[in-house]
Amino acid sequence: MLYRITVRNADGEKLEIVVEMSEDEVRALAEELRKAGYEVRVEPIPEGEEP
Rank of each mutant, 00 (worst) to 15 (best):
M1Y: 13
L15P: 01
K14N: 05
Y38S: 03
E43T: 11
G37Y: 06
E20S: 14
E39Q: 08
E25A: 15
D24L: 15
I45Y: 12
I5D: 00
R41S: 15
I5R: 00
E32P: 01
V42I: 11
G12F: 04
V42D: 00
G12S: 03
E13Y: 15
Y38I: 02
P44N: 11
V40P: 02
I45T: 04
V7C: 03
V18H: 06
E50T: 14
I45E: 05
I17T: 06
E49S: 11
L33K: 01
I45G: 03
E25V: 05
V26Y: 01
V7T: 06
E13N: 15
I5W: 01
P46G: 15
I17H: 03
A28W: 09
V18C: 04
K35T: 04
D24Y: 08
Y38T: 02
E13Q: 13
E39L: 07
Y38M: 05
N9H: 11
K35G: 05
E43C: 12
L33Q: 01
R41D: 08
V40W: 01
L33A: 02
G12W: 03
L15W: 07
V18N: 03
E47P: 14
P44Q: 11
N9T: 10
R4M: 06
E50W: 11
E25F: 12
K14E: 14
G12I: 03
E16G: 04
M21I: 05
E50P: 13
R27E: 12
R27Y: 10
V19D: 01
R27W: 10
G37I: 00
G48Y: 09
E20G: 05
M1I: 08
V42G: 01
E50C: 10
G37T: 01
K14P: 09
A30E: 05
E25H: 09
E47F: 13
V26C: 03
E32H: 15
A36E: 04
V40A: 02
G48W: 12
P46S: 10
D11W: 14
R8T: 12
V7Q: 02
R8M: 15
V40T: 02
L33N: 00
E43V: 11
L33C: 02
A10C: 06
L2K: 10
E50Y: 14
M1D: 05
V7A: 13
T6G: 01
E39C: 04
V19W: 02
E23D: 08
M1T: 09
E32F: 12
T6K: 05
E20N: 15
A36P: 04
E47H: 15
E16I: 09
R8C: 05
R34E: 05
E50S: 13
N9Y: 08
R34L: 05
G12T: 02
T6M: 06
E20V: 14
I5S: 00
Y38D: 02
G12Y: 04
A10F: 07
K35F: 06
A36W: 14
M21K: 03
G37L: 01
P44D: 03
E16D: 06
I45W: 10
L2M: 14
R4I: 06
E13F: 15
V18D: 04
P44T: 12
A28F: 09
R41A: 15
P46H: 09
E47S: 15
E20H: 11
D11G: 14
D11F: 06
P46R: 10
L29M: 08
R41Q: 14
I5C: 02
P44L: 06
E32M: 14
I5E: 00
P44C: 06
I5Y: 00
I17V: 07
V40H: 00
M21Q: 02
E32Y: 13
I17Y: 10
P46N: 13
E13S: 11
A28K: 09
D11M: 13
V18G: 01
K35P: 00
A28L: 13
Y38G: 02
E13G: 12
E20T: 13
E39H: 13
A10H: 14
N9E: 03
Y38E: 01
S22Y: 11
E13K: 13
L33W: 12
E39F: 08
I5H: 00
I5T: 00
S22E: 09
L29P: 00
M1G: 13
V7R: 02
T6H: 09
A10N: 14
M1S: 11
R34T: 08
E43H: 10
I17W: 15
I5P: 00
R27C: 12
P46Y: 11
Y3A: 02
E43M: 08
